[in-house]
Amino acid sequence: MRRFLFKTTLWLVGFFLILKAVGMLDNLDRTNENILRIRQVGTLSNLDVLFVGNSYTHTGIDPLQLRESGLETYSLGINAAGVAFYRLLLDDYTRQTGAIPKTIMLLVSPMSFSRFADTFPSIPIHRYLYHPLSNETVAWRFGAPYDQLLRRSFRKGLANAPLLFTAEEESADMKEMLTYRGFVPSRMTFSGKVHPEIAASYEPLSRDPFPMDSLEDLQDLALEYRNKGARVVFYELPTGEAPGLFHAQFLDDYERALADLKKNGFEVLRIQWDTRPLDFRNMDHLNSRGAARATGAIAEYLSEKPGTAAGGHAEESVR
């Protein structure tokens, strides 16, 4: 029995080690836009404004447009980012550059509080950081499903293994993204009709409650960076049809959450205008035209309200 148990345990340990060893190659990929963004922003220690958010950010904020206003900016929009991703991205950035951006813009939207936010198994951002975190750490800290993280890392590692021996070229799209400092311009225009399959994939959102604990985590994060000397602004971009995916109670709670942020002395910038499909590339992401308007509104806000790190600003609505 003892021998059997010993051999079985040894076998399982071997199995786990193979999983881990191959999984360690999961971030070798040089054509992954999330990895490239994180690597690029980690070289910029003199940022005036760092935009952190999800895909709404990387399609909706154009840093080169803000440069015209004299602001060094980066659009760190990572797909599916929520509060946990924001935390990891900011901590990794400050650790890598040793600097704190003068202004940190944190995206708020119903989607960044939804079940589609902070999905570590599909976007394992912790593995893409300058200082990657292990799957174990993320499973422990954020309750991410460990088996799925292991599986994802193993698969990705297996696919990346040949990269150990080959040089990989960044694609033209990736080069463009780096030129635009994280921004992904799109000239596509939304048809105005949501494909039934896409609508169906978002259907679970209509049942979810608003996660109050995420709001607390967001406030803690903002407070921490404000205490470190950064000006923290919450910003909201137009999201077209997306609010319709949530139920009324969720949206009410979301509005209360924004009011809460304001009440606690944070700046909340809500960029709104009478949006048309022409401003979007799909159901909820801005296209180049929409991004130009949104970025313009932010530039205007930042120039009009230079602000201080201590915060204490009221909600602003830019139309």
Partner: peptide
């Protein structure tokens, strides 16, 4: 051993 490991890894990955 390698065959068993390969089978187990295939199962684990596809068990998603």
């Amino acid at each position: 051993r390698p065959v068993y490991y390969a089978m187990a890894l295939a199962v684990f990955v596809l068990m998603e």
